[in-house]
């Protein structure tokens, strides 16, 4: 435990983590591995939603970027509104996690990466018709060739990690 903590402190500075959607507000509680199964379940629900809302469809993404359908805007918009209201409720009533921990929120810091990286992701999103979540869901629905797209996305992530120091942030 102590060893692993030191590894993090020396190699992954706070800024790296705060730039990321990665879990900052990590629980200090120690749980057995099978506690993670609840996230598997949430993932299953999310995966089904991605398929049934047709977010995983290349056609829907095309419609969105051609302004030919309201569907995707409705989905993302109503998801954000639901998220905003939920977080307001959590903050207002100081709702705790099911283990009684305080739910913490961390502010994201601006970086040029959000602009450059955002544009690059936008290009990829339009080409593949899938953001990362739908890549996994597409494979699940039997479009096995998407696993190549996913592997390529992992390669892209790796390349970013490799080049990170020399990129503007």
């Amino acid at each position: 435990m102590n060893n692993s903590t030191t590894t993090i402190e020396t190699n992954t500075d706070f800024e790296v983590r705060s730039l990321d959607a990665m879990c900052l507000n990590e629980s200090t509680l120690k749980h057995p591995w099978w506690y993670n199964l609840k996230y598997l379940f949430i993932g299953i629900v999310f995966g089904i939603l991605l398929v049934k809302s047709e977010v995983i469809s290349w056609f829907r993404i095309q419609e969105m970027f051609r302004l030919e359908s309201f569907q995707m805007y409705g989905i993302i918009g109503s998801a954000v509104v639901t998220g905003i209201i939920s977080i307001l409720i959590i903050k207002k009533f100081n709702i705790k996690t099911i283990y009684g921990e305080k739910i913490e929120f961390h502010s994201k810091k601006f970086s040029k990466g959000q602009v450059y990286g955002g544009l690059i992701f936008g290009f990829g999103w339009a080409l593949t018709g899938a953001c990362p979540g739908p890549l996994f869901a597409q494979i699940g629905t039997g479009v096995l060739v998407t696993s190549i797209t996913l592997l390529s996305a992992i390669a892209g992530t790796w390349m970013y990690g490799r080049m990170r120091e020399s990129l503007p942030h």
């Binding site: 730039l19 990466g113 955002g118 990829g124 080409l127 390529s152």
Partner: peptide, 20 residues
Amino acid sequence: MVGGGFLVGFGTRYAGGCTS
């Protein structure tokens, strides 16, 4: 597929997150 996937992986990490 390969080009698009690469941009998705590179861009999301550079931006620090994706649609979710």
